[in-house]
Nucleic acid binder design. Structure first.
Length: 488
RNA sequence: CGGGGCGUAGCGCAGUCCGGUUAGCGCACCUGGUUUGGGACCAGGGGGUCGCAGGUUCGAAUCCUGCCGCCCCGACCA
């Protein structure tokens, strides 16, 4: 077997790397911390992007594009914001190269030093709010509901493909509103869209909640998050939606005149999901045989493999099935490769996570049937040619449902509730996963628990956060019941 | 940025301790043939600045010095 994948039980990190590498999602690049997203990985991202883009547009948002470079001075306008990102920014200091007078190669031309250095965007709030200042004068200009699809750079110490890379792709929404309530509702709306996308398309169940002050986005008054549980029982923050209050409006002096011609700072939100979702998708569903993709995001939903190899009779049937499935909006690939044997192809498509495989051999044709295999359970069944298209269409729906249900069951098994610190540590060690516990609401307790156990408060869940006892560590009255977990 | 491991063909590795023919093996690749319902077999073939730069030596993948990169585990973060 050429494509050996490390098992999850043996080494989860290595398993993840093997899947990414061997299924062809991404490669390491020549640039430290940056990856090359390969066609399969990018196709998954494109599908995510297409769906999210539709959801944004259905709720009144439009796309635009802002520069990748941000003048250094912009970053420092909002104190907390700069504090949050200062440590991980790439800085452009020069704009020209020249031949090295002492020998070979090129060097930076010292005479091209920039008067004001430029920051490669780690996020775009500052450049965007600097621009919004010119776009907004009156309540008639509001709300402003803009999204951009872009790359950003955060100079990370330790990187992992998709989960954390120095450069990554994402969307960032930046909206401006006349009232606090409207901005708040916008942040909630996007939070809801993210959760729906994760569950309905990625088949990745998430918990909706608010971040604690210490985990909040730098510059936000409130951060909403969706938190998913990976197969190694660690939490993954999968998307965040921020209520920014008037912080950026004040920093960039963005005011509007209301109906009474009274000037006021506008209210803001920002929100984003990134290529990290691809990593989440991998870690939610995949197994030791390779990638497992939910049908709704799989670039190829069905592959047809002629057995043992393509011939005219088989291809004729294959093309017919393909046409029927295409009619239903299902993407189909027919493997016409004559060199590789079926067994090899089966393994390859399992590695690549294609949800449904149809095998067609001469024996099948004699019996007027095909063999249909599903990736999620590896089950195979013989299905009559007549109605095979309906069978496949139904099966794709069933696989999607099975994946989300399986993930929900897994999360349920790894969700606990504790009342004291001893059992907290016990559960964290033995079972991992999400742990509900009362929290006194102080930064100190939160930090202390992180220090002692590596677990952090993932969120204050929107539902079920009423305290019903004392803080597990401090013994002080609980302010919220929160969810702790070890996290990515 | 700390601790550990590693860098030899596209991938996985042996050889390095103890310097000495033309640097090897498996997979992959190319050609031909035989095969073909779960990763086929046989024969032939192509492919390497041994991570980079210096040094020691008659001679360096092997010894010395410096640098770079990658992986795993931590700290930091989406």
């Amino acid at each position: 077997m050429a494509k050996e994948i490390t098992s999850r039980s043996e080494n989860y990190s290595q398993w993840y790397n093997d899947i990414v590498k061997k299924a062809g999602l991404a490669d390491h690049s020549a640039v430290r911390g940056c990856m090359v997203i390969k066609p399969l990985g990018f196709a998954i991202w494109e599908n995510m992007k297409a769906q999210l883009d539709t959801m944004f547009k259905d709720t009144g948002h439009v796309n635009a594009y802002f520069p990748i470079f941000i003048p250094k001075s912009f970053l420092s306008r909002e104190a907390k914001h700069v504090e949050g990102f200062a440590k991980e920014c790439a800085v452009v200091t020069h704009h020209r190269l020249m031949n090295d007078p002492n020998g070979e190669g090129v060097i930076v031309d010292p005479s091209s030093k920039l008067e004001e250095e430029l920051i490669v965007r780690p996020t775009s709030e500052t450049i965007i709010w600097n621009t919004y200042k010119d776009w907004i004068q009156s309540y008639r200009d509001l709300p402003l509901l803009i999204n951009q699809w872009a790359n950003v750079v955060r100079w990370e110490m330790r990187t992992r493909p998709f989960l954390r890379t120095a450069e990554f792709l994402w969307q960032e929404g930046h909206t401006a509103h006349a009232t606090k309530q409207e901005a708040w509702e916008e942040a909630e709306l996007i939070h809801e869209i993210y959760a729906r996308f994760a569950e309905d398309y990625m088949a990745m169940p998430v918990i909706k909640g608010a971040k604690t002050a210490s985990e909040r986005f730098a510059g936000a008054d409130e951060t909403f998050t969706i938190e998913a549980l990976m197969q190694d029982k660690k939490a993954l923050q999968a998307g965040t939606s921020h209520f920014l209050g008037q912080n950026f409006a004040k920093a960039f002096d963005v005011k509007f005149a209301d109906q009474n011609n009274k000037e006021e700072h506008v209210w803001a939100t920002s929100w984003g999901v990134s290529t990290r979702l691809v990593g989440g998708l991998v870690m939610t569903h995949s197994d030791d045989e390779g990638l497992v993709l939910p049908p709704k995001l799989a670039p190829t939903q069905v592959v047809i493999v002629p057995i043992p190899k393509p011939n005219e009779a088989i291809l004729e049937v294959a093309e017919k099935i393909k046409a029927q499935l295409n009619e239903k909006g299902i993407s189909v690939k027919i493997d016409k490769d004559k060199k590789k044997r079926p067994g090899f192809k089966f393994a390859q498509y399992e590695l690549e996570g294609v949800p449904v495989r149809i095998g067609i051999g001469m024996r099948d044709l004699e019996n007027n049937q095909v063999e249909i295999a599903r990736r999620d359970t590896k089950e195979k069944s013989s299905v009559s040619l007549e109605g095979a298209d309906r069978y496949v269409a139904d099966l794709l729906v069933e696989i999607q449902e099975n994946l989300v249900q399986r993930a929900r069951d897994f999360r349920k098994e790894h969700t606990s509730e504790v009342k004291d610190f001893e059992s907290f540590k016990e559960v964290l060690e033995s079972k991992g996963g999400f742990i509900h516990a009362n929290w006194d609401g102080t930064d100190e307790t939160e930090a202390r628990i992180k220090e002692l156990t590596k677990a952090t408060i993932r969120c204050i869940p929107l539902e079920g956060s009423e305290p019903d006892g004392n803080d597990i560590l401090s013994g002080q009255p609980g302010k919220h019941k929160v969810i702790y977990a070890k996290a990515y």
